[in-house]
Structure formats: C-alpha cells, structure tokens
C-alpha cells in the first residue's frame, strides 16, 4: 500500500453525434511515493485536472490502470480503502465547501468513511483544526464568513479526516492571496512530513513547484512532454513550453527576462 501507481491512463470525452471526440489525457503514467511530492505542471486544457479527477476516480478512465498496492481500482466500484487513502485539496476553497452548510457540518461530513461516534468526530475535528493552525471558532461559520486562507486550511483539514496516505493538490495556492501562499505551502510541507504523505501537486506556477516538488512532469495538450527531478527540470528545461512557464514568473534563465519598468517615466503634461 505504499505506492500509488498509474499506468497508461487515457481519457477520451465523447463529443456526441455532432462533434469530434476529445482526447483529454493520453498514455499517462506516474508513481506517487509516500513522503514524496510529484508535481504535474500544465495550464488549462493540458489535462492535469483530468488526471486528478481520474486518480480520485471521480471520472473513469477510458483505458489504463490505477493501482494502490496490488489492486487495480481503475474500473467499477471504488473500494472504501482507496477512497480513504486518496483525498483532494481544491484550488478555490470557496467553491470546495457547500455554501449552505456551516464549516462544522462540512467537517463532520468528511468522516462518513470512518465509523466514529459524534463525540470522537468532534475530538478529531478539534485536533485537525489545531494541526492546520485554526481553532473551533470557525466551526459555526459559513464558508463566506472566513478568509480564503483560513478556508484553504480547513480544506486541508477536511482532506485529512479520512487519514489518507496520498493527497492530490489541485492548484492549492493559486486562488489565494500572494501574502499567504507561503503559509499554505509551509503547512502542506509540515503535514507531509508528519504524516508521511505522498503528494501529487497540480500547478502551473513554477514558484510553487520549486518550493514543493521532488519530481516534475510537464503536460501539454494531454501528454507528458517533459519529466525529471525537480532541480534538473527547473534549471535546464528541455521543452520550450516548460521554458515559457518559467519565463512567465521570471524564473527563466535570462532568455526572456521580465521586462523592467520604464527606464524613465514618461513626462506627464
């Protein structure tokens, strides 16, 4: 049970009678080890989110295998153990919580895969909130009544409720304010260390990738165009798309450096 292995994953969305079928993901293979972070890099339409949904089995793959230990869970009913073992943290925390439920209700709801009494659940929720740096005052609030950063911490706490071994992080910081992105990166790193989690980080922001990843895979239009050890890929990207992504955040190696502000401000009338 220590490796989440994906082999030859393919997902085709049928376009119906009128339109062409769309191959969202083609021949995707990866291994996520515990204590390890694999970054899957790509922008909208590159297939990264589809990979996340497939691994969580919120979608069923057209072909390929998803293995946790010996068992292939890629088709049919998803075993409870698999559901417990693999959880997700979403990009936009505000969308990740039912607006009609209090945060407390949503957190209680996250324990449905574990047979606990209400009291045990409450105790564990308190513990989880503490581990993400919050306290019980948020329980009575609705998602819109806490800040984005706090809600993302709660999203992480919720994902931990099943005691997972693997977390899929779908752009976990890109909907958050710049000044608190680092908080979430740090919290994720601490959580990973303490629980020995295997992380699949989906991101297009190379700064986040640099801060978190051990290995990197770059996806473009449904296929992997580059993969390797994180330091290597960031320092010496072999694919031009990877270079573009690095340039976009000023991490390129000078070829397309960030334009500086005007050398002298234009005179105003």
């Amino acid at each position: 049970m220590s490796v989440l292995a994906v082999d030859g994953l393919r997902k085709v969305f049928s376009g119906g009678r009128a339109r062409k079928d769309v191959v969202a993901v083609d021949d995707f293979s990866c291994e996520v080890h515990r204590h390890h972070t694999l970054a899957l890099v790509g922008e909208s339409g590159s297939g990264t989110t589809t990979v996340a949904l497939l691994i969580l089995r919120l979608l069923s793959p057209t072909a390929g295998a998803i293995r946790l230990g010996q068992e292939d869970v890629s088709q049919g009913r998803v075993p409870v153990e698999y559901r417990r073992a693999v959880q997700i943290v979403f990009q936009n925390p505000l969308g990740a919580f039912n607006p009609r439920l209090t945060i407390g209700t949503s957190l209680h709801d996250a324990f449905r895969l574990r047979d606990l009494t209400r009291k045990e659940r409450a105790a564990e929720i308190a513990e989880l909130l503490d581990s993400v740096g919050l306290d019980g005052t948020v329980l009575g609030r609705y998602p819109t009544q806490v800040s984005g950063g706090q809600l993302q911490r709660i999203g992480i706490a919720r994902a931990l409720a099943t005691r997972p071994s693997f977390l899929v992080l779908d752009e976990p910081t890109s909907a958050l304010d710049m000044s608190i992105r680092g908080q979430i990166v740090e919290l994720l790193a601490t959580t990973q260390r303490e629980r020995g989690l295997g992380l699949l980080l989906i991101s297009h922001d190379m700064r986040v990738v640099r801060a978190m990843a051990d290995t990197v895979m770059v996806m473009y239009r449904g296929t992997v165009v580059e993969e390797g050890e994180a330091g290597q890929v960031l320092a010496k990207p072999s694919h031009s798309y990877t270079q573009d992504l690095l340039d976009a955040v000023g991490m390129g190696n000078g070829a397309h450096a960030t334009p500086q502000p005007d050398p002298k401000p234009e005179t105003s009338l």
Partner: peptide
Amino acid sequence: ASYVRAARAMGHGHMSLIWKH
C-alpha cells in the same frame, strides 16, 4: 462544483449527495 466532488471523494453515494448537497 468542487464541493460536490469533494463529497464524492469522501465517499458520498448518489443519494446522500443529492440529499445533502
């Protein structure tokens, strides 16, 4: 919506998903 996906990842079946969310 993400919260519906989250609920499914937490093991909600169709009926409880509909009822609750």
